[in-house]
Amino acid sequence: MAPSKKKHAKSPACIIPGGFAVLPLQFSSDSTARHSLYVKEHKVRAETSSHRPLDRTLFVLNIPPYCSEEVVKELFSRFGRVDSVELRDHPGSSQESGPKLSEFFRLPGKKGFHVGYIVFKKASSLTAVKSHPHDVPLVVCTEQRPVKTGVQKWIHQYTESFIHPEKLQQIVDSFMENYDKRKEQEAERQKKEAKQQQEEEEGWVKVTRGHKGTKARPHSEAANQKTLKKEMKKKKRKELMNFYTWQHRNTQKEHIAELRKKFEEDKQRIALLRAQRKFKPY
């Protein structure tokens, strides 16, 4: 990755073992040092989600912290139209589950180096990327496309963090509405399932504990453990501890053993302290 300035206009792309192509990247045109992006077509055995189509998705490693999704999109549009960009902390399958959250309610992600999944419009863009010469760097911040960092960025961030209470209230309301709807649907589904079960058993009604209307409690780990403990206690209560002479003798023996053990422990503690010269008073 020697930053040799100008060699040939057309030098071959650099491919390293593992199949990654190296793309140099620098912050601005007058930067002296470069990062290297490692890119490869996205290939996994069982990609289930539809938004990372195997033939058109580029997998990018080592994206510096100052490149947001928009910046990456801009950067890579020189190789063809970009459909979407997804930046993540670690490589892995997407796990977008649950309802869509407003950006104000999402937990803040890490601001370190990212991996990216770039989906192009056309599959041909992938080859274009991979054959990009390794000594022509991508430039993040240009005059046409300034990227804010440092104080500018923080002030921008601070300004952006404001949200009008009414708007916030709206977001909350719409989410809760959705939530209630989902809850209702869920309840309905459960009811339906229960009904179905009842019907399946052809006229047999399952009898459960508790009066009518209360559902059987959902299983929980804590409840299981509690029951187990109760059993143990019961068993223990029934035992007699001080009945036979040998039991007496045993407790005495145990006492002496306890004293001995403590003595040995103390001896060891002392030995340890002595080894650390802890007894020199001054």
Partner: peptide, 10 residues
């Protein structure tokens, strides 16, 4: 270089 870039102005 990133130290410089990320803390521009500071």
């Amino acid at each position: 270089e990133d130290f410089r870039t990320m803390g521009k102005g500071l």
